[in-house]
């Protein structure tokens, strides 16, 4: 089971801030995004910034059980 967090406009579009998912072993960030886009039809096409366990990740990053994956729109602080 992994935890997926949505922020900013993504949480508004997906109508949730957090969900838990079962993923197959050796799934990548790219696989996860495909799963999320299937589940949330209003999810934008991107760009996204992805963090796995609070560290910025790439599309090829492997997601492991118990990971926390943040799906974030471009930052707009300051």
């Amino acid at each position: 089971m992994i935890k997926v967090l949505f922020f900013g406009i993504l949480s508004t579009k997906c109508k949730t801030k957090e969900l838990e998912l079962d993923i197959t072993s050796a799934a990548t960030v790219k696989d996860l995004i495909a799963i999320l886009k299937e589940r949330f039809s209003d999810m934008p096409d991107g760009p996204f910034i992805i963090a796995v366990n609070e560290t910025q990740a790439t599309l090829d990053t492997i997601i492991n059980d118990n990971d926390e994956v943040a799906v974030m729109p471009p930052f707009s602080g300051g």
Binding site: F7, I9, M72, P73, F75, S76, G77
Partner: peptide, 24 residues
């Protein structure tokens, strides 16, 4: 650099509603 690298977002509240800021 803060605007590009720190995971903080802002949402503007206007008389017509609210919208997430997507640019910096």
């Amino acid at each position: 650099t803060l605007k590009e690298t720190v995971p903080i977002w802002k949402k503007e509240i206007t008389p017509d509603g609210e919208s997430w800021v997507t640019e910096h």
